[in-house]
Design a binder for these strands. Sequence first.
RNA 1: GACCCCGUGGACGAAUGGGAUAAGUCACCGGCCUUUCAAGUCGGAGGUUGCGGGUUCGAGGCCCGUCGGGGUCGCCA
Length: 516
Amino acid sequence: MTKFRVRFAPSPTGPLHIGGVRTALYNYLLARQQGGSFILRIEDTDQTRYVPGAEAYIVEALRWCGLELDEGPGIGGDYGPYRQSERKDLYQKYAQQLLDQGQAYYAFDSAADLDRLRAEYEARKAVFRYDNSTRMDLLNSLTLPTDEVKRRLEAGEPYTVRLKIPRDEEVSIQDRIRGTVTFKSNELDDKIILKADGLPTYHLANIVDDHFMEISHVIRGEEWLPSTAHHIYLYRFLNWESTMPQFAHLPLILKPKGKGKLSKRDGAKLGIPVFPLAWEGDRPEDSFAGFREFGFLPQAVNNFLAFLGWNPGTEQELFSMDQLSTDFSLERIGKSGARFDYPKARWFNQQYLIATPDVDLVALLRAHDTDGLTTDRSDAFLAAFAGLMKERVQVLPEFWEAGYYFFGPVRDYETKMIRKKWKPERRAAFDALRDRWAELEDFTAAGAEALVKAFMEEQGWGFGDVLPILRLGLSGTMKGPSVFAIGALLGREEVSQRLQLAYDYFDQYHREQASA
RNA sequence: GACCCCGUGGACGAAUGGGAUAAGUCACCGGCCUUUCAAGUCGGAGGUUGCGGGUUCGAGGCCCGUCGGGGUCGCCA
């Protein structure tokens, strides 16, 4: 049995789209499950679209997601080099073999010639295709006399090499997700396999690399399904068909709302992340925040992504990477497009925040602290804060939005609650309670609770008379953790000062209301 | 336009070689808990499986047609 080897083969043309991350994840999961290898191969054969920094971004994104590579650029392995730009000679050799075998031919048509043809066809509402029905009318080694071809080649005229697709055949792809998919060869165009710059196109490079890297399974996006027929021909002509990898074409990820596949524009438009990490483009509109910056945990992103096109067939939804790698299977990947459901992603993240120990949340909080709130706070304080707030937020930045009052004064009070609950004649009693709380020997949540209960009993008041006042006084809002816990974390001095300030404000507010 | 893929409640999706009242999750609504909010828990509303034929004792799973969505048709991947 051949070893299970899969590759993730992105093109370094910009930040990795979240769909690419999912493809990488699926490859990684299967590699781990099968005890195989997960390989990164950089497909940088298009020099015009090369973006500096993109490769580093890809590596960093995979690292953040915890998708550990077994082989790749900068990592090594026995099948390198892992950048296609460093394998140029290999491709030329096999293009030449196909030429020699008569299964490929030289084409001298310029890009401008072809553009013109396409425009002409389009004007007639037709689509031009360089294929077995048109190639005999074009400028190539099939139509030109042999010595003319030779002359052009020797004169160094630019040329491309095209795959000569046979006529009147049928090619079938055995797809692990879609079953048998059949194409008629007459519907296939003569794809360019070697460009005028001497570099291969995806099709050739991909087949040669997958062959020599002994890739056993090609798991990629559905957009590759139509060209897989060409790839079959390439394997066949190169006499590699018997060791050809198995194919699995993944369903696309669809927009959160409306029609079409998820695009990077959706990110900006809807204010949601569509990249794993932030990317700095040349222009502001080319720069994006990623899932990391939006405050997602990588485990949550993986779990969410795993379910975009796959499900275990059980009711379980929360999966660690270990569980995923044992339960994941090609058979359970769906065929229809998966909608990008952002609220669901947030839900996953909340589940992971709750499951993360408070002490482990501390570093994350510090990393997401853009206002310097945590600088002079101890780890213990932040851990306690995290514990109090984590089940009330879904993404990291919401810790600050919902719990800012742990780090500074209350910014505003819910006035309708003041109106409802504050009775100026009780000021003296509340002042007394404040003093007793500040002097409390057992300054804990439990201690405060005991104290307040005793106070209520003395006054003959209920919880509703006291708790809302204290809550409002300490946090300004009716939402949040237990008042006693808030007080315990804030500390004696802060509790005393805040309540003093709040009571004054409540009194003032009451007077304004009365005179208005 | 041609070819290919897909089509189950608002969203994700289970029912994986046709066989019993079409799971579950997210979102929504309500109860409980907390005299807060969330979390948790219990319950509710919401699909007859795009539509029309056909095969079958029986179809969401098969066949045909149709509509809708998507992908591809580059010297991009």
